[in-house]
């Protein structure tokens, strides 16, 4: 009996490429309406910029990743750290 073919969709580079293109399209589609909508602001007029939340999310994540990377230099230790004397 022939074995059932394994699910390996992500192993194919062309699929990953398609996924990437789809992802970029989604990003563009999400920012696009901002140019036409009237946006409410909470604290500052900056929030009305088109794509403010996109920029906010991106910058916040870059900062978080960089900060944790810095923390990691001090805080990351070998797995047997607590077992060693």
């Amino acid at each position: 009996m022939k074995q059932k073919k394994e699910l390996d969709w992500f192993d194919h580079p062309q699929n990953v490429k398609r996924l990437k293109i789809g992802f970029y399209i989604v990003l563009a589609v999400l920012v696009l309406p901002d140019f036409f909508l009237h946006k409410h602001t909470l604290f500052s007029s900056i929030e009305a910029w088109p794509g403010f939340y996109a920029l906010f999310g991106f910058v916040a994540c870059v900062i978080i990743i960089l900060v944790s990377k810095l923390f990691g230099f001090v805080l990351k230790v070998r797995e047997d750290y607590y077992d060693r004397e």
């Binding site: 991106f58 994540c61 990743i65 070998r78």
Partner: peptide, 22 residues
């Protein structure tokens, strides 16, 4: 979605290591 973008762009920085954190 732009958080996701940041994740995949900075993926090399997020490489898993065999460590624990203090």
């Amino acid at each position: 979605m732009f958080s996701a973008l940041a994740f995949f762009m900075l993926l090399p920085l997020l490489k898993r290591t065999e460590t624990i954190s203090i």
